[in-house]
Design a binder for these strands. Structure first.
Lengths: 208, 208
DNA sequence: ATTAGTTTGTGAATTACTTCACAAGCACGG
DNA sequence: CCGTGCTTGTGAAGTAATTCACAAACTAAT
């Protein structure tokens, strides 16, 4: 199969969230034009994105909402439950562990790790913070699909090395550093400073 | 000036964070090749990004670390202090309000708003949660540069309307909905679900 | 001074992404 | 069952982003 651009995957994810809203409104079909309007793109873009995976629409009518939702879930791999561990029991880690949105979409946080003695053993909802040194051993028993890394910048490289050694192939990185990982490990970065600086840039360079 | 792509701005922000690390190590100059290695890109990309704004390097030598840092801060608009308000006093809002990284980079959170009666009046560090209905009035006294929107999906459209009416021109949006705003308002979206789904897609489609 | 060794800055080439534009397919009404 | 009105799916065209490749400029050493 052809390589799919990250921007395409982002849009698919967006379309799915729109479809869920449309489904709640009780509508049965939707056109590429309507999805484009919601997503701030063009109908051709929507059709091209979808056509990379098959022909899901009916000409003259549009797309069946439940059918397209189902297809998108399948494409995005949301059919199964994913097992997620959080590394770093700081502010961000805590907020993420409590975030309900994860489980709703099949991302189950089943463990939290930290290297700080003071945090190990603390309970968060149903989870207990465990020492990062146990990660590799735990991963042998319970396959983690995704690691959420929310550690201070200076510890992150070491932590990621352990995550990779534990065989985890997907990382959501909140630390403000660029990770270096083998090519079979996928990384997505969420970097607040970068987003704010993007806004700062926009504000500083308007109307020039 | 030529339009600058969002991807370019992201990279500039990344280069700056690398330069700060390099400066702490005491190095005086850096090559485009080194920056590229850190950022997972190519040296040509680094040079092209910088060349959009001027000629900052010395051939045969590279870039002066403090000089390039300063230029990047200037380009990104980090010379001044930005005034930020957080809208939505939930889990994410709370984590953001407490996040030290903001102030360090000149983004000062000076107010928190919510529409929930139960949350209004609560104190967070030095801030008190205020009713969203006061936002427009407050904005007249104290210009907010950036609004961080961290509200539940269903309230977000209404909240954003008030943000726009208060004259705020930059929004960092954590709500899982697409905002519709006038073209002079810049929006950056941070959407956890979308990032996780990107990882889910990658895990589901490896080696095909 | 001259040479050897680097590294920048940038047109040209390439690759990737988006939009255009239209034939083909389907629903519905008469 | 034929025409009208929509909407999809997709090559072709167009636009944007990235990489190539090399002259120009600088350092340091002899």
């Amino acid at each position: 199969m052809k390589r799919i651009a990250e921007s395409t995957v982002r849009r698919l994810s967006l379309y799915l969230s729109f479809l869920e809203g449309i489904e709640r409104q009780g509508l049965k079909t939707v056109s590429s034009d309507e999805l484009a309007r919601l997503g701030g793109t063009t109908s051709a873009q929507v059709r091209k994105d979808l056509s990379l995976f098959g022909s899901f629409g009916k000409r003259g009518l549009g797309y069946s909402v439940p059918e397209l939702s189902e297809k998108l879930r399948e494409i995005l791999g949301l059919g199964k439950q994913w097992c997620v561990c959080i590394i770093g029991a700081g502010k961000i880690g805590a907020a993420l562990a409590r975030y309900r949105g994860f489980a709703e979409r099949g991302f189950n946080v089943t463990a939290v790790y930290d290297s700080d003695e003071a945090k190990i053993g603390k309970r968060w909802e149903s989870l207990t913070v465990r020492p990062i040194s146990e990660l590799e051993k735990d991963a042998a028993k319970q396959d983690f699909d995704i690691a959420v890394v929310a550690t201070p910048a200076e510890n992150t490289a070491a932590v990621v090395k352990q995550v990779v050694r534990a065989g985890i192939k997907a990382i959501l990185n909140f630390a403000p550093v660029q990770l270096s990982v083998p090519s079979d490990v996928t990384v997505r970065n969420v970097n607040m400073a970068m987003e704010l600086e993007g806004l700062s840039f926009a504000l500083s360079n308007r109307s020039e």
